[in-house]
Design a protein around this nucleic acid. Structure first.
Ligand SMILES: NC(=O)c1ccc[n+]([C@@H]2O[C@H](COP(=O)([O-])OP(=O)(O)OC[C@H]3O[C@@H](n4cnc5c(N)ncnc54)[C@H](O)[C@@H]3O)[C@@H](O)[C@H]2O)c1
Ligand SMILES: NC(=O)c1ccc[n+]([C@@H]2O[C@H](COP(=O)([O-])OP(=O)(O)OC[C@H]3O[C@@H](n4cnc5c(N)ncnc54)[C@H](O)[C@@H]3O)[C@@H](O)[C@H]2O)c1
Lengths: 284, 284
DNA sequence: CCGATTTTGTGCACACGTTCACAAGCGTTA
DNA sequence: TAACGCTTGTGAACGTGTGCACAAAATCGG
């Protein structure tokens, strides 16, 4: 089956014209302009935005990188570097103006125009998502709900009637849905995904524990709670193992929180990359 | 370890006593043993485990790294490296035995002994979590539910009665709860977190959009859906911007799925780090 | 107007993660 | 047994992300 399924993740740069071109060791080139915000930074910007909004609500006018960093649970140097991707909006010796940062981050994250959302699979999780006030509150109005269950079709959930999944392409195109959230059973996820893509949806947030195959222009992020728990489980196991075996060094650091250079708050950052349909139809 | 664990990956060596020590350029040193599984790899191991379980159910006996990688949406080299952290369980020229991999991954992730879970905040999301069959199905039995709402106390959800949050420390200690899931409103999250910690809970999965402060021996992971959407939003914005501005190069690559350097399937990997109570009590 | 103080913005070095590429090992076949 | 083909395991190169440390700006006080 050759390389890896979908085939195309070549070592060479895109090289539109000449795939075999022997380019030396140019690092960036390729794309048009220069500055590209690192994936990891984007995730943190979203967190800063939340913290800043809360600060603004409390009447704060300016923040220093130190303050903001500590509230967001990151290192202040990292914070400054992250903010520097937006441009230079701070004042040395003073700090950042909260309002300015908020609007700059919003602009960068593309939150100036609302991104409409559709939820597919109105079961336990789908209900919660459809009712969640935090989405519209943050510029992500939920404008369509879908399911297969005949008993659900037409029933309003969170003020919006559930529609049949066969209508996904039509409705999504019509309402210009930007983001699709998949909360169906795993087996149904790929089919739903395909319909969303057919409807012109550009981004998908997937709760079903499957790896989705999508065309390259579609962005997928997944949230897999079982995986989250397993990662936590790993850390517990590792700590327990350490406690039993290596009881020589590192003991007080482990116990009462001195935690030397405890750099960051809890994260789940990371990037998500789209993926093409592969040649082989592996099971999932 | 020392690597990226919870507490100790300081610039300077922990050096309880001498923080200004002028260590040369030693790379690992520090703690006892050697191999530490990279954080990013742990997240993927969990995914491999799911895929492998599905394959086992379908009767597969062996897999090659190519097959498994493609099913899991990653590069095969990466997969092999990830598996190599477990030890050498493959057979050259043949592949891996599915059963062996499953049990090795389970052992490594600490899934050999069940990790009991408590859910706090039985609202929209909490209900979904409490009813989710995927948790007990994967070795994470939900054994306690908590809320403050008097109307909820005593009501069974998913076959388990909801208890009052004041009982969290007692019940968690008694039932040896390993993982606490927080699904309360943001304002209540820190308080709940403190009680969970008091009850001896080692890991916390936090759905509330706040940065939790915990002692260093507690591991926190957060799931912030608004942040996920914002990251997606960023990518949409960037693509749109590119389409408008840089219409010189990279055009067909963008459209019909050629996907230049399409490296991996969708991820949300990343690490979570514990965090001590900070010196300043910043708002959140 | 100048120096002290504060805090940003960033060059640099290092750690981490990813990918390549290939030798080492295994099974099979002649 | 020897030669061959296949697949693992891993060294090394590369790219990305993190954190330090300091020069550059701005404000304030005298
Ligand atoms: N409930 C949770 O807390 C939780 C946690 C983690 C992951 N998940 C995942 O989220 C997904 C949904 O979980 P849930 O607990 O809400 O399940 P659920 O069974 O309660 O709901 C699933 C819904 O999807 C609908 N559905 C089934 N096939 C469909 C299709 N082809 N198209 C559209 N809708 C379809 C069903 O009618 C039902 O309403 C699952 O993949 C699950 O693994 C859920
Ligand atoms: N619903 C979603 O889809 C969704 C999505 C993303 C994030 N979240 C986050 O998850 C959390 C819960 O969301 P929800 O929609 O389930 O909210 P909800 O209002 O439906 O439920 C919150 C529950 O927490 C309980 N609660 C309040 N204070 C408490 C306390 N001090 N201790 C224990 N329980 C307490 C309430 O009684 C209620 O039952 C929120 O922080 C929200 O931001 C929810």
């Amino acid at each position: 089956m050759a390389r890896s399924g979908n085939g195309v993740e070549p070592p060479q740069p895109p090289g539109d014209g000449a795939p075999t071109a022997e380019l030396p060791k140019v690092t960036d080139r390729a794309v048009g302009r220069a500055r590209a915000i690192p994936e990891a930074a984007v995730a943190r910007l979203a967190v800063y935005l939340r913290v800043l909004s809360a600060m603004a609500d409390q009447g704060a006018v300016t923040v220093s990188s130190e303050e903001l960093a500590s509230a967001a649970g990151v290192n202040s140097a990292k914070l400054r570097k992250d903010l520097s991707y937006l441009g230079s909006y701070g004042t040395r010796g003073v700090g950042y103006e909260v309002e300015v940062l908020v609007s700059e981050i919003e602009r960068t994250l593309g939150l100036t125009r609302k991104q409409t959302v559709a939820v597919v699979g109105i079961g336990n999780l789908g209900h919660a998502l459809a009712n969640y006030a935090g989405f519209p509150g943050r510029g992500f109005p939920v404008e369509a709900l879908f399911d297969v269950d005949p008993d659900l079709i037409g029933v309003p959930v969170g003020g919006l009637p559930v529609q049949h999944i066969d209508d996904i392409p039509k409705v999504c195109a019509q309402k210009r849905i930007a983001i699709g959230i998949i909360a169906t059973p795993p087996a149904a996820a790929q089919g739903v995904c395909d319909r969303l893509v057919a409807g012109g949806v550009q981004c998908i947030l997937n709760f079903a524990p499957v790896v989705l195959q999508v065309p390259s222009h579609v962005e997928v992020r997944k949230v897999d709670l079982a995986v989250e728990l397993q990662i936590l489980s790993f850390h517990v196991a590792r700590k327990a193992e350490q406690r039993h075996a290596g009881r020589s060094a590192a003991k007080r650091a482990e116990r009462n929180g001195r935690a030397p250079a405890n750099r960051a708050g809890q994260r789940n950052g990371g990037r998500a990359t789209a993926r093409r349909t592969p040649s082989n139809g592996e099971v999932v």
